[in-house]
C-alpha cells in the first residue's frame, strides 16, 4: 500500500507499506524520523506521542493507513530551525532529561497542554502527563520543566 501524509509540514510518501504497520513504524523505519519512541507499542507509555491533525495520539496505536492525507507533527517538528521550543528548552534546563527515552513523548504532551492551558496547576500537569511513563526521573523535574516552560511562555 502507498501512504502519503504530511509530516512536519512536508508531504511524504512511502511505498509497499504492510497494512498492519503502525504510524510509529512508518515514521521511524520508513520516513527516517525516529524521534517518536517505541517503549511499549501498546498504548501504555506515551513515548510515541505525536500530533495527528493537531491532536496528540499514540503513534503506535494508529495504523499507518489512517494517516493518509492527514497532518502529522512529531517531536522533530517542534523546534523553530536551530532554536528550541520553550518546552524543549525547559526540559533540558530543568534536568527533566536523564536517559531521555520518555522525553519526545513528554515534550509533545507538555507542548499540547501548554497550548490548551497556558498556566496549568500542578494537578492539571499531572493529569495531562498521566499517560507518559518515565522510569528515570520520578517526574519531579518533569513537573519543574513544565512549570518553567509555562513561565517562559507567559513572559514572551
Amino acid at each position: 500500500m502507498r501512504v502519503t501524509t504530511t509530516v512536519n509540514g512536508t508531504e511524504r510518501t512511502a511505498d509497499d507499506v504492510w497494512p498492519g504497520e503502525s504510524l510509529l513504524y512508518l515514521l521511524r523505519e520508513r520516513l527516517g524520523l525516529p524521534g517518536a519512541k517505541n517503549a511499549c507499542e501498546q498504548g501504555e507509555c506515551g513515548s510515541c506521542t505525536v500530533y495527528l491533525d493537531g491532536e496528540p495520539v499514540c503513534a503506535c496505536l494508529v495504523a499507518a493507513g489512517q494517516a493518509i492525507g492527514r497532518e502529522v507533527t512529531t517531536v522533530e517538528g517542534l523546534a523553530d530551525g536551530q532554536s528550541l521550543h520553550p518546552v524543549q528548552e525547559a526540559f533540558v534546563e530543568a534536568g527533566a532529561v536523564q536517559c531521555g527515552f520518555c522525553t519526545p513523548g513528554l515534550v509533545v504532551a507538555a507542548h499540547d497542554l501548554l497550548a490548551r492551558v497556558p498556566e496549568p496547576s500542578d494537578p492539571e500537569i499531572r493529569e495531562a502527563l498521566a499517560g507518559n511513563l518515565c522510569r528515570c526521573t520520578g517526574y519531579e523535574k518533569i513537573l519543574d520543566a513544565v512549570r518553567l516552560a509555562a513561565r517562559r511562555q507567559a513572559t514572551r
Partner: peptide, 21 residues
C-alpha cells in the same frame, strides 16, 4: 552543568539503539 546530549534528546535526534538504521 547541563547534559551535552540534552538538546539531541529533546529534539528527537539522539540515536538510541532502537533507532539505528
Amino acid at each position: 552543568a547541563q547534559r551535552p546530549d540534552g538538546t539531541l534528546k529533546v529534539t528527537g535526534e539522539f540515536a538510541y539503539a532502537s533507532d539505528l538504521w
